[in-house]
Design a protein around this nucleic acid. Sequence first.
DNA 1: ATATTATATAAGCGAATGGTTATATGGTCA
DNA 2: TGACCATATAACCATTCGCTTATATAATAT
Lengths: 114, 114
Amino acid sequence: MEKIKSNISETAELFKTLGDTSRLSMVAMMNRKECCVCDFTECFGMSQPAVSQHLKKLRNIGLVKARRDGYWTYLSLDEESRFYDMVPYLIGAIPGIDEHVDRLFSKCEGASCC
Amino acid sequence: MEKIKSNISETAELFKTLGDTSRLSMVAMMNRKECCVCDFTECFGMSQPAVSQHLKKLRNIGLVKARRDGYWTYLSLDEESRFYDMVPYLIGAIPGIDEHVDRLFSKCEGASCC
DNA sequence: ATATTATATAAGCGAATGGTTATATGGTCA
DNA sequence: TGACCATATAACCATTCGCTTATATAATAT
């Protein structure tokens, strides 16, 4: 009974978290491959703390996990997440998403991790 | 090019709008059948202006349309909306949604439109 | 006309959001 | 050790959110 209610609010929380252009784009990128924090700062032209705070929200709902390797931290969709299976559909529903993600990745060729 | 970007932000806007438990529940109810404003005030125990403002957001993104009949205004998902086809999937992805919507509808039996 | 009913809008308020700059953390390398 | 790098966190600020109360609007009904 209460579990149902919490399912609703958890799903609402997912949508809320995806309801930001930057985070939605990040998830779209991670839906294609693992990404480095510096990829995001590079291709969004966004400050490092801003990226870090967006990623924190994505980690907080369990959608994204982090892996550290030397200097860099790599982010990817967490296949343990209850939302994991929804992501490809949600992202796939965005018209022109493939071109958008292409363009974003082409912008982060200068990122320090590359 | 710019069109793609706007697709992203429009989709983000959709998620943001659905990222609220009340609005998500309203959409889940309308996904089953047309609803009256007073249904919502009744089953959410929410004030009339609060409901009205939530509905305005749903109408602003074109997801919901209104039909007036005498005293009452009836709301439903707008089949003209670019998001219309996504709704059943998005709602269907919420665990236990059917029971939740059942419970909500059972709460609005006292609504003035009935 | 006037009263009544459902709904919309306006104004105000506390809380949350998303950015900023400054600083802390923690791994790497000389 | 100490300097350096990527990332996280803290503190702050302007804007947005979601509610409230009060009032406006528009369709009945008497």
